[in-house]
Amino acid sequence: MARRPYPQEVDRFKWWIADPHFNRPFYLDYMARESTCIFIALYAILFVWGLGALASGPEAYAGFIGAMQSTGGVILQLVILAFAVYHTVTWFILAPQGMKPMRMKDGKRVPAGRVVQALFAMWAGATVVTLLLVWVLIP
């Protein structure tokens, strides 16, 4: 008897929200993580716009900062911030899976959880040091 394979139909646009055969929370989480790049790219565009304004002079820069620090600008950046933080958290949680295993002096593998904790500590440190440096550098 001939084999009759069953090719399951998958909607290539909506598979991550609509397909009942998939593990939806898992794929939704995956797509949320991957989508953070849209917001990181958007922020980079805003950043380059700011550099252009800074190069053009005080008036252009005032226009840029006015837009960034208007209600709409702040709301947009808070949305970007939410996705940026989601990127940070997911990036750190996945980091032990993407790097060469770290080993202690006796050759034992450093537990993945320890690596994640160290990364979160680095994040806290980097944020505090950045803000302190900026605070010191304000003329």
Partner: peptide, 17 residues
């Protein structure tokens, strides 16, 4: 981006410093 972007965004909103 993971380490430094959140701090940068806080600064450009003007909510911090």
């Amino acid at each position: 981006a993971a380490l430094l972007l959140p701090a940068a965004i806080l600064l450009t909103t003007g909510l911090v410093l």
